[in-house]
Nucleic acid binder design. Sequence first.
DNA 1: GTATCTGCAAATTTTTTGCCAGTAG
DNA 2: CTACTGGCAAAAAATTTGCAGATAC
Lengths: 146, 146
Amino acid sequence: MDDVKNTSFRNVLAEHGQRYTRQRDVIFSIVSKTSDHPTAEEIFLEARTLLPSISLATIYKNLDALISCGLAKKVNHTDGSRRYCCRADPHHHATCLSCGAVTDIPGTLGDTELSRVRNEAGDFEIVGYELELNGYCPKCKPHSIS
Amino acid sequence: MDDVKNTSFRNVLAEHGQRYTRQRDVIFSIVSKTSDHPTAEEIFLEARTLLPSISLATIYKNLDALISCGLAKKVNHTDGSRRYCCRADPHHHATCLSCGAVTDIPGTLGDTELSRVRNEAGDFEIVGYELELNGYCPKCKPHSIS
DNA sequence: GTATCTGCAAATTTTTTGCCAGTAG
DNA sequence: CTACTGGCAAAAAATTTGCAGATAC
């Protein structure tokens, strides 16, 4: 199973004229395995546990490479920090207004809803969307009454 | 009409222990009048036409002040740039994948849709949401076929 | 073998801070 | 008056770039 995934990872890279490297692999798996959306710095710290000599510049370069292959993308974050996630099954992002944690919420918008939006959009051709939610996570909810 | 708005602007500031200043007013009106979502730098350049001696640090400080009063918020774009917008009537953001321009699209999600999402969210208490769309704006659409 | 990639350090860009004079309330 | 602000310059963070040696293919 992992072999298959790894092969397709290599293929996607190859299709975009990019080579497979250990660094790239590690970065990709960090971004795709974490359910929250790490910052470049966080990815760097995590990657260093596997590749102690990796540098932050390599993280940035590889994130760009992954993005150009469609394997990852930058995500919006209500607090303004730049974060990354891999393009997986559709889901929404819920950011806690209190602690800043990001939770993934499964699901997509309904077709009815989507065509309504598409209608409002007029000449703008909608390719994709992302629903950013904000509020209070279970941990912070009790305090939010203040 | 503008007087009323201005009074309420002052009130909101006062409620949050913030003072009314010309700089604050200018920055707020720039952010609320532009339909696209300017970066701090863009706000700075615009503000300088009215207040030639304003500094970029003042822009940042005031944006924080406005945000803390709920008068503006940070939005990130798919391209990773940090931008600001004022909290006005509900709308979606459509970012052009080709030229990066951001268009506001009026509308809200339907109640049915929203309660579905709320349901999926479980213990996470949803306060607000933002629908980020991406695709191609009318200007770039013709080229997107390539 | 050759083009791409890595890690390093330096350069940029972006954002935040400290300070003192100026101003709102 | 007194606390909050503004502008400046300097500091700190975040991101990008250039390069020589290493590596994928």
